[in-house]
């Protein structure tokens, strides 16, 4: 029963996205919707890692960047087919995730946070410093649009279709993973690693597996970013973006797939809305982060539900 309801939800959600994509005027909104889609892809992976397996990463912007730069450099400088470049990005991200993940995932809590933070910053610095390859701080330009089976995704509408088709695919995969033997084992590790081990769950291997999956999602989003905005700069892949990703997960609600969609959307749109405040933008953004985390630590959806429940009980009490 619950399963059909879930697919129904997905259907309605898609209809809304498609409608807004085609009805909203101008390319600005389509570009914004695409950006939301890319962030959703990363956040879905990060939520598998944080919300389900219970492992934090403060360095996921690095994988986003690895995908973006691999796709950008291979297609623009070396004229490689975009699909091959995307796959190369996934391969590189897998490799890096395994090399970093094996020692890092032995750490717990804050120590894992510190290690992933350090990793993310090192990669961001590399993007800036390897200017012979990446164009350095001023960015990398001239990335061609994505091509696939003779299709060229050049117009905003085509890009919108490409991004949201992949969001759908990733959403489908993630819902399935959560609801499977693997997803169950991940949640078990989160609740009690000792008991999970005693039940025969190879916790270390599974944590690494899901770390790699989340890196792959981020890398895919990075490749898509390169082909949709055609220009990338290292400032998009730094420490602050990693924190923003974690915030999207928490604001949406840990271990909530649908919450991830909301968290990504809200935190992508928010800076755009705040842009009217000019210099105040940063101040208001910081303030909102703090206030939401202080008063709704379980995320927007669950937090508001909790508040509503509290009010209802107070009323009944009288």
């Amino acid at each position: 029963m619950a399963r059909y309801q879930r697919w129904l939800q997905a259907g309605v959600f898609y209809l809304l996205v498609a409608l807004s994509g085609s009805l909203l005027p101008g390319t600005y909104y389509v570009t914004l919707l695409n950006l939301i889609g890319l962030h959703i892809i990363i956040v879905l992976g990060l939520n598998l890692l944080m919300g389900y397996a219970g492992q934090i990463s403060l360095g996921h912007a690095a994988f986003f960047g690895l995908g973006a730069y691999t796709s950008g450099i291979l297609t623009a400088t070396y004229k490689v087919d975009p699909l091959l470049a995307l796959l190369a990005g996934l391969l590189l991200s897998t490799l890096v995730a395994v090399i970093v993940g094996i020692p890092a995932l032995k750490l717990k809590g804050y120590y894992l946070a510190m290690a992933t933070l350090g990793f993310g910053i090192i990669v961001a610095i590399a993007f800036q410093q390897m200017d012979w390859l990446t164009g350095g701080p001023s960015g990398f330009m001239g990335i061609p649009p994505f091509r696939f089976l003779g299709w060229r995704f050049q117009t905003p509408a085509a890009k919108f279709f490409l991004v949201w088709a992949l969001v759908g695919l990733i959403l489908f995969l993630s819902l399935n993973i959560v609801d499977s033997r693997i997803g169950r084992a991940l949640r078990a590790i989160h609740d009690s690693e000792t008991a999970a081990l005693a039940m025969g769950v190879d916790a270390q291997r599974l944590k690494l597996l899901i770390f790699v999956v989340s890196a792959l999602y981020a890398s895919l989003a990075g490749s898509l970013l390169a082909h949709t905005v055609n220009f990338i700069a290292p400032s998009s892949f730094g420490f602050m973006f990693s924190i923003k990703l974690v915030t999207m997960v928490v604001v949406g609600g840990m271990a909530s797939i649908w919450g991830s969609l909301l968290g990504a959307a809200v935190l992508t749109v928010l800076p755009e809305l705040l842009a009217v405040f000019h210099d105040l933008e940063v101040v208001i953004f910081g303030l909102i982060l703090m206030v939401v985390m202080i008063f709704l630590p379980r995320g927007l959806v669950r937090g508001l539900l909790d508040l509503w429940e509290l009010r209802r009980r107070k009323k009944q009490g009288r």
Partner: peptide, 19 residues
């Protein structure tokens, strides 16, 4: 007791089937 508290009773047993 070391149960998976955020999971349902049957899901706890299902983790036992993992192996």
């Amino acid at each position: 007791v070391q149960l998976f508290g955020h999971m349902t009773v049957v899901e706890n047993v299902m983790v036992g089937r993992h192996l």
